[in-house]
Design a protein around this nucleic acid. Structure first.
Length: 228
DNA sequence: TGCCAGGCCGGGT
DNA sequence: ACCCGGCATGGC
């Protein structure tokens, strides 16, 4: 029972932008189907993946996570106590491995020392406070923070990524220079406040982007939402 | 082969 | 407040 009630979605959208964004969502959902995001077996794995996938294809991240699992290292305590050089070596396939090893350690230090290694305690403070805490960690920017909050914490924030901006900008729905926070507010202020919707919508935008809206990709005009 | 991938930081203007 | 170079592997 994880489908969406399209009529309710449209009814609860706010303003003409909300209606357009919902119509786009429905189109994408009908075209691509449910995406079952985030790929990952546990909330902690989602957090690790969110950091590793910064400017990096998921395929490379999957190799890195596979290495961590194979070495029985995918837990806060284990990674917290691991030498950074060893961690960097295990996540090598994900690229930027030195800086990402440090970023993982920055996040995990906060998790272990402030929240007793318990993600539930991190998310307990609610959306805004959790977001501020995550953004204060060096190496966690807005997209990574929102990914962690939405896909590991199940709290209703909207994730903006390069595909989201490129898709909406190429279809003349937003200006080219729209900022992360402006775009996030556009979605969150005009759509029903629904974790399942935000979860599926971002995943669908990424899938659409991969197929039709890469940096240099003329197929954009033939994508499922062209002409909306 | 070169360009790109589910960003972010730090220094310069 | 922007803008840019650096970070790095693997796929198409």
């Amino acid at each position: 029972m994880n489908g969406f009630n399209y009529n309710n979605l449209i009814k609860n959208a706010k303003g003409p932008e909300g209606e357009l964004l919902i119509k786009i969502f429905i189109k994408l959902y009908k075209h691509f189907g449910p995406q079952h995001w985030w790929p990952g077996d546990s909330p902690f794995e989602v957090c690790v993946g969110a950091i590793l996938t910064q400017n990096t294809s998921w395929k490379n991240v999957a190799k890195a996570i596979h290495n961590l699992k194979q070495n029985n290292s995918l837990s806060p305590e284990t990674l917290h106590n691991m030498a950074p050089e060893l961690l960097a070596d295990m996540i090598r396939p994900a690229g930027y491995f030195n800086i990402k090893a440090q970023r993982l350690k920055n996040f995990i230090s906060v998790l272990v020392e402030e929240f007793d290694s318990d993600l539930d305690r991190l998310f307990q403070a609610g959306l805004d406070q959790t977001r501020e805490r995550l953004l204060a960690i060096k190496g966690i920017g807005p997209e990574t923070a929102d990914s962690i909050i939405l896909y590991a914490g199940g709290l209703p924030t909207f994730v903006i990524d390069a595909y989201t901006k490129r898709i909406l900008s190429r279809h003349n729905i937003i200006e080219n220079n729209t900022t992360y926070d402006e775009l996030r507010r556009l979605f969150m202020d005009s759509l029903p406040n629904d974790t399942a919707l935000f979860n599926e919508y971002h995943a669908l935008l990424v899938v659409l982007g991969k197929d039709f809206c890469r940096k240099t990709n003329p197929l954009c005009k033939t994508c499922p939402i062209s002409g909306m």
